[in-house]
Design a binder for these strands. Structure first.
Lengths: 317, 317
DNA sequence: ACGGATGCCCAACTGATGGTTGTGGCTCAC
DNA sequence: GTGAGCCACAACCATCAGTTGGGCATCCGT
């Protein structure tokens, strides 16, 4: 492919071969193989060199794009100077959605989103220290437990919504207050014990006297959806920004929780010294996200809602 | 790469091998070769299969994108059912710019822009008839000369601007009328004799008694730019939408021509029956382009300015 | 008109590669 | 403990991708 592109740019197989450090015959054979594989002629051979055919012209930009893709792929994992790599809890979580939004408005950013798949946030923190990832969206709830060489910043608050099936008694509500959830079973699978999320749900259930079952194992998304769709008494909680997609046949409803809004404070942990330069833009991006009302309930380690740039003049969209 | 992606999706080399029709060992060697080449481990091997490492997670989307690029490249030139292919006069011409705009707003369109590099529009027409391209932006000025099985539609009108260097007497004008161009040398290289553009400039020079030198050979863009930048009496004409980019060091000026505006009517020639389905969107796109004033001068074969969808309520942007 | 230079393709050869089969080690489930 | 499942390694072999050598067509200057 590179031989083709270079030959197309230079108009000569000979020059391309010289640049690539092989013989002209090698390039000729590469092009011939490519043409044979594709079933079309890419060049017309002339006495002065080669010239792209129509098919070659059409193929060229694609070839360039493929090569660029390969180069990006290599730099994404090149040991030493690799692309910005951020750990999220799940690829459909609000964290990933925010990163995706950022990337869409800054498509030139070399950004890779990964999930460490570890339960304990300390393990994720160690990965940041080791340089395996450049930052993690995990949370250390005890400020004293955060290593000195790391910094944790409040990224944004993720308001929670209740998801229920059509037979659920709350299914037709437009909005719910936390007391209204009392007595209903709420199943939030996949929460690792002793993780920051477990602590969040602990505080939440204590505060509002709820019945949140966050201990059970995660059997997969489909089991959860099936359960929700059929059940008349089980619901689950998801972040308002979480991009969970399910077949419309499931007929599930997302119901905001208000008065107070319940939010999980998502934070970003990154090295204190010499963080990856690409992080700056992402951190700035957090500032442009909507703030939640003052009355929002938050866990103890983040008692007050996050404030935007505007501070007092907050309440922007 | 496909082995890697499939293995990552399935979580097992064995299954991936079955799907790909090779032995498990072959896939194992492919992955190992990829890892050796990249210098990182992509999978952690477990007893139940394989699991992506962080590097593997980061690499996966890139790999997918590369494969998608390869597939697009192949479909772009697959004989039989290939992507929409349109012939333009030059890759920086207004024609190409309009196509690029369309593609940016419809990025899913599989569109390849090529240049047939033929002087005579009849040759381009033959290429459309032969199916080498799906449409051409060339023009057949004599309606009777257009083959019955083809259709020519008025795409949009491209207003002309004068380009001159700083020493040119008209350099400081904000706008110019055609009579003001009289007596100044205008050099438009690269116009093939007997082409529709030659005819256009013929009519233009006759109509306004201008001195347009459209016969000379094209020595390349740099020669033209050098000449313009140094000269105190030579200018050239370009379409307002043409995306000619030149180093700012050249200090050239583009000056609109008004009262009347001079425009070249760009048309699209496509098969009358069973045109490529992708053409519909592009043709619709023309309708959203700005119309020129009624007083616009046009060559005889397109005597009246093109009208937009809005017809009388035209004048949209 | 005619060498010479240039640039392509084809042929023969060879080391490297990418596939195969066979085998062994590891982990997990019963 | 034992069998099943899965991956890695080893040996082997056909193919491939590169090399050198040679031939043909075109262009250019004498």
């Amino acid at each position: 492919m590179r031989s083709f592109v270079r030959a197309a740019e230079l108009g000569q197989l000979q020059q391309a071969a010289d640049e690539l450090g092989v013989t002209q015959q090698a390039v000729s054979k590469r092009i011939a193989a490519l043409e044979r594989e594709l079933g079309v002629r890419l060049f017309t051979r002339t006495a002065r060199g080669v010239e792209l055919t129509l098919d070659g012209q059409a193929f060229l930009p694609h070839a360039r794009s493929i090569i660029a893709g390969v180069d990006r792929a290599v730099t994404a994992i090149r040991p030493g100077s690799r692309a910005l790599r951020i750990d999220v809890l799940g690829l459909r979580s609000a964290q990933a959605v925010i990163l995706h939004d950022y990337w869409r408005s800054h498509p030139e950013t070399e950004l890779d989103v990964v999930t460490l798949r570890v339960d304990d946030p300390r393990t994720a923190v160690a990965a940041v220290q080791a340089g395996d990832v450049d930052a993690t969206f995990r949370t250390i709830t005890d400020p004293a437990a955060l290593p000195r060489d790391l910094r944790m910043i409040r990224a944004f608050d993720s308001p929670l919504e209740l998801v229920v099936g059509p037979r659920h008694p709350l299914a037709s509500a437009r909005a719910l207050t936390p007391p209204q959830l009392r007595g209903h079973r709420i199943w939030v699978p996949g929460i690792a014990p002793r993780s920051e999320w477990a602590e969040f749900y602990d505080q939440l259930t204590t505060e509002f006297d709820l019945r949140v079952d966050a201990a059970g194992p995660n059997f997969g998304n489909e089991v959860l959806l099936d359960t929700l769709a059929d059940s008349a008494d089980v619901g689950t909680l998801v972040g308002a920004r979480d991009r969970y997609i399910w077949p419309t046949s499931y007929d599930l409803r997302r119901i905001p929780i208000v008065n107070p809004t319940i939010a999980y404070p998502i934070s970003l942990i990154l090295p204190r010294t010499a963080p990856h330069p690409g992080l700056r833009g992402i951190i700035n991006h957090f500032g442009s996200l909507a703030c939640l009302p003052e009355t929002t309930w938050l866990p103890s380690w983040a008692a007050t809602p996050r404030r935007g740039d505007g501070d007092i003049t907050s309440h922007r969209r």
